[in-house]
Amino acid sequence: MNDLITLKGVTRVYEVGTEKIHALAGVDLTIRPNEYISTMGPSGSGKSTLMNIIGCLDTPTSGTYEFEGEPVHKMDDNQLASIRNRKIGFVFQTFNLLPKLTALRNVELPLIYANVPRDERLEQAERALRRVGLIDRMNHKPNELSGGQRQRVAIARALVTNPSVILADEPTGNLDSKSGEDIMRLFDDLHEAGNTIILVTHEEYIAKHAQRTLHILDGKINEDTLNG
């Protein structure tokens, strides 16, 4: 099968004053479609930086990154925006929903930037909300939803464009364990349905949901294991 994501020698160096921080210090990684991957590592080890680069929110300082065979490291801002829009679904620890919009309109948002006609947008957004079990809350605003529900809306938003990969940076970090477990079951379902999922977590039991776990240390993949 063709590789979905290929990173070779990827580094990301932040310059703070005169100091250079090697957030990523040479990462080689290959991810195939429909993999379910968890990423673990101590705080500050570079997990978020890696996710941001995979999610095309950031670009490597050096090294190459190919997404479905396309060289992301050579792309300009508009091309990156287009990949983020069509190919990647991002789920954040803090949900990052727009507070003034209803669940439905939050989920609809990526489709606006994909230039999808309104009727189709609403249909797809409703389908995504149904998928995460929140169709009955579609007209609620984020502050009228619980944390777990907000994260579901965020997942629906990530799903709505049918992306090639769903990235989730500590998606359960702001949730109680019960809601966290619900969210993980949703990810399991999505994986079952054929989605590729990469998530970051601190919790061993959450990481266990994935088939493969990357252990990051000091900006490098220290360990890459398959879960039994």
């Binding site: 999610g55 929110l57 801002d77 508009n78 925006a81 287009s82 983020r84 829009n85 069509r86 991002f90 990052n96 929903l97 727009l98 948002l109 990526p110 930037y113 994909a114 938003r157 464009t161």
Partner: peptide, 16 residues
């Protein structure tokens, strides 16, 4: 600012 970040993360270009 955050809203702009969200919009960009889900695919809004600079022009938009």
């Amino acid at each position: 600012t955050r809203e702009i970040g969200v919009r960009k993360a889900i695919g809004a270009t600079r022009a938009v």
